[in-house]
């Protein structure tokens, strides 16, 4: 199944958002997630199903003004 992660298309075998993060090697990272424009709290990632064409944003702390 193909999903869009941070703007790039990607093949995934994961069924839920937590598993996608594990695939990305970001399971333990300090990140926040949004699926199709909606914030998904870290505690809800395991229960959040992923579907074909879903848009996932994985954001981390960054420099800001």
């Amino acid at each position: 199944m193909r999903i869009i992660v941070n703007g790039s298309s990607r093949e995934t075998a994961a069924g839920d958002l937590a598993s996608v993060l594990t695939e990305l090697g970001l399971a333990e990272a300090v990140v926040a997630t949004a699926l199709n424009g909606e914030f998904v709290p870290s505690g809800a990632r395991g229960a959040t199903r992923i579907g074909e064409g879903d848009r996932l944003e994985v954001l981390a702390p960054m420099q800001g003004g």
Binding site: V31, V58, L59, A60, P61, M62, Q63, G64, G65
Partner: peptide
């Protein structure tokens, strides 16, 4: 200090380094 959120790439993990610095 002000900070922001930006896309994290699994390769660079730039955000993780920045956050530990802060």
């Amino acid at each position: 200090v002000t900070v922001s959120l930006r896309r994290e790439s699994s390769g660079e993990r730039a955000g993780q380094g920045f956050w530990s610095l802060i």
